[in-house]
Amino acid sequence: MKKIKIMMVCGFGLGSSMILKMTLDKVLKNHGISAETFCSDEATSRGEFFDMVFTSEEMSHLFQGSSKPIIVIKNFLNPDEVEEKGLETINKLTHEE
């Protein structure tokens, strides 16, 4: 089992991404998954080290052409959407050697 690094991205890495991190943390906890989750902003996120990204439609263009999975979330307060769109990838990356 690998502890993957999951990055949330919004404009400043302080508000929306923080809410999204809380929603994702809740999903991870429910599934007993251990991962490192952190927030980043529009300007510096591309320089971070990460295994996958959760962000909004508006920010997703930052990662165009990225080889890492980019999950676009509409409702940052909805654990069901986060789980539906991201859990499979998280499980896959976590179990990768």
Binding site: G11, S16, I19, S56, M59
Partner: peptide, 13 residues
């Protein structure tokens, strides 16, 4: 940066 601050239906931060 665009209207990403509307983070959930009907809610803006």
């Amino acid at each position: 940066l665009g209207p990403y601050m509307v983070l959930s239906p009907g809610i803006a931060l």
